[in-house]
Design a protein around this nucleic acid. Sequence first.
DNA 1: GCAAATTGTTTGAACTTCAAATTATTTCTT
DNA 2: AAGAAATAATTTGAAGTTCAAACAATTTGC
Lengths: 155, 155
Amino acid sequence: MSKEYSEMNHFLVNVFNEILRTEEASLKTGAYKNLSVREMHVIEAVCFAQKNHSNTASEIANSQNVTAGTLTTTIGTLERKGFVFRRHDQRDRRVVRIFPTEKGKNANEIHQQFHHEMVSSIMSALSEEETLVFVKGLGAVQRFFETKPKMNGGT
Amino acid sequence: MSKEYSEMNHFLVNVFNEILRTEEASLKTGAYKNLSVREMHVIEAVCFAQKNHSNTASEIANSQNVTAGTLTTTIGTLERKGFVFRRHDQRDRRVVRIFPTEKGKNANEIHQQFHHEMVSSIMSALSEEETLVFVKGLGAVQRFFETKPKMNGGT
DNA sequence: GCAAATTGTTTGAACTTCAAATTATTTCTT
DNA sequence: AAGAAATAATTTGAAGTTCAAACAATTTGC
């Protein structure tokens, strides 16, 4: 149980939550106070999905790991709030495609800027060389979680 | 917008969620399926608080960033499920102290083991030297979020 | 000893999420 | 081409989470 071990553990437990709360606080004080973290992430996913033309309801639900029913209601409120709108696909009219409004795009841009501030602030604390190693470490973390979706024990 | 920048951003957006879902999946397949991630974390906090004798309701609520009322209900269900129990403090009978049962301690142990697997798996992907740098990076992330609780923009 | 403060609980409302049932549309089989 | 099966999204009903505000019990300070 080395110092590195316990620091990394502490990171995973605590900083993790810090990040989430920073996001929350940021939204509450930002331009669009009536957006929850979840809703902001859906808007982000909708904007991102435009690029790949993968902006159907089920694809977005999938990317957010929620059921189709849940996404329907989320999109409903986001539509009511004026951040996104729906259009039936002409090819297959069962399919609903979701698009960001100008307001939605603007919210996403502000959100991207938040990310940018966050990341560049972290990077400025590291030397160029250290940044490289750090990113390599992140890659390891990433791979671990992407290849080992199931473990035993719980958090 | 370097490669490091976008990788770090990707990490913050995606891996973050992976971790949460890994925890969830792990709990659902683990020994105590009727525990949510939130509940597991409260049990963890209760076990940890024993050490400092800081196991009052409000201290634990604070550590979890929920209101006192919310903690009351969470502790209520955890008590009903047999993971924790309450005792009035003899010194100040307004104060309620919360203790883990044997079952609660066991759940926490399994949970700690999950963390251990997670962390050691990550560390095994890095050399000793790289681990040191990585931990330094984590420290920077940590400090950033702990000193800058409020930003503008949102996630 | 009484007023104010503190600690925890209850209550009511709003929100989130899911599974299952439902609707609309397309694809497959013959 | 008709009908059955499959697919995409929505609706519905239930369970769970969270909070703020009101409340109850107890302690502290004057």
